[in-house]
Computed example of a mutant assay.
Amino acid sequence: MFPNWQLAGLSFAYIGLLFFIAYVGDKYRHKLLRKSQAIIYALTLGVYCTSWSFLGTPGQASNNFISHLPIYLGPILLFIFAWPFIQRIIRVSLKLNLTSIADLLAARFGKSHNLAILVTIVALIGTMPYIALQLKAIVYTFQQLQAEQSLANWHFGLVVSLVLAGFTIVFGVRNIDVTERHPG
């Protein structure tokens, strides 16, 4: 258990380290992309599996020992067997300068603006539980490391959400270009 001031200091130091890594990744992106593209993709798959490993999988495995396998097998099988399909989607996206799944589906079905709105809403609703699970994992970890609880869970969750939103704005969505990469 850490005193709250020490835990807050360690958290801010960690967040600062993440911002520094993202800054360096953006600054030297042209040198990093050639060398580390495979590592970046492997790390993103690791991030995908992390929150499910922390909160989702143990609960599922306690009810049914096979139910958690699709979470890990799905991405693995997709990248092994559906790689030509993924490459085709990438080629079409680059050719038509598409930046989201909503753009892709709208372009394939007559550039329908209403379809793009519907796909965006469905994607937003579909990703909300995953984002909530990530936030829950962060809040739960912070709670377990606290010596005494001074903030309510929703206060800390709000702070974490604002920091993550700031990080996304600063390093994620500044420019929207289909060929842009974010190695940081």
Results as ranks from 00 to 15, higher is better:
1 M>Y: 08
2 F>M: 13
3 P>R: 10
3 P>D: 13
6 Q>S: 12
8 A>V: 13
9 G>P: 07
9 G>H: 07
10 L>I: 14
10 L>S: 09
12 F>G: 05
15 I>A: 15
17 L>F: 15
17 L>I: 12
21 I>Q: 02
23 Y>V: 05
23 Y>T: 10
24 V>Y: 05
26 D>V: 00
26 D>T: 00
26 D>G: 15
28 Y>D: 03
28 Y>K: 02
32 L>Q: 01
33 L>S: 13
33 L>I: 10
36 S>L: 13
39 I>C: 05
40 I>R: 01
40 I>D: 02
48 Y>E: 03
49 C>S: 08
51 S>I: 09
52 W>R: 04
53 S>L: 14
53 S>D: 08
53 S>C: 11
55 L>G: 10
56 G>W: 02
57 T>Y: 10
57 T>C: 03
58 P>F: 09
58 P>Y: 08
58 P>H: 07
60 Q>C: 01
63 N>H: 09
66 I>H: 12
68 H>A: 15
71 I>R: 10
71 I>V: 13
74 G>N: 08
74 G>Y: 11
76 I>M: 11
78 L>T: 14
78 L>V: 14
79 F>A: 01
80 I>F: 12
81 F>W: 13
83 W>V: 06
84 P>Q: 03
84 P>Y: 00
84 P>F: 05
84 P>V: 05
86 I>P: 01
89 I>K: 12
90 I>C: 06
91 R>I: 05
93 S>H: 08
94 L>D: 11
95 K>C: 03
95 K>M: 06
96 L>M: 08
96 L>A: 13
98 L>H: 04
99 T>C: 14
99 T>L: 07
100 S>P: 06
103 D>Y: 11
105 L>F: 15
105 L>C: 04
105 L>W: 04
106 A>N: 07
106 A>R: 08
107 A>M: 06
108 R>A: 14
111 K>P: 00
111 K>T: 03
112 S>F: 06
112 S>H: 04
116 A>N: 05
117 I>L: 13
118 L>H: 03
118 L>M: 14
118 L>G: 10
119 V>N: 03
121 I>V: 15
121 I>F: 14
124 L>D: 06
126 G>A: 07
128 M>N: 02
128 M>L: 15
128 M>H: 03
129 P>A: 01
134 Q>E: 07
135 L>P: 03
136 K>V: 06
136 K>N: 07
137 A>D: 04
138 I>G: 05
142 F>M: 11
148 E>N: 13
149 Q>D: 07
149 Q>F: 06
150 S>H: 13
151 L>V: 08
153 N>K: 11
153 N>S: 15
154 W>S: 14
155 H>K: 09
157 G>Q: 12
157 G>D: 10
165 A>P: 00
166 G>W: 10
167 F>T: 01
167 F>G: 04
168 T>Y: 09
169 I>C: 04
170 V>R: 13
170 V>E: 08
171 F>R: 03
171 F>Y: 15
172 G>Y: 00
172 G>H: 02
174 R>D: 07
175 N>H: 10
175 N>Q: 12
176 I>N: 09
177 D>A: 11
182 H>S: 00
183 P>K: 00
183 P>M: 03
184 G>K: 00
184 G>P: 00
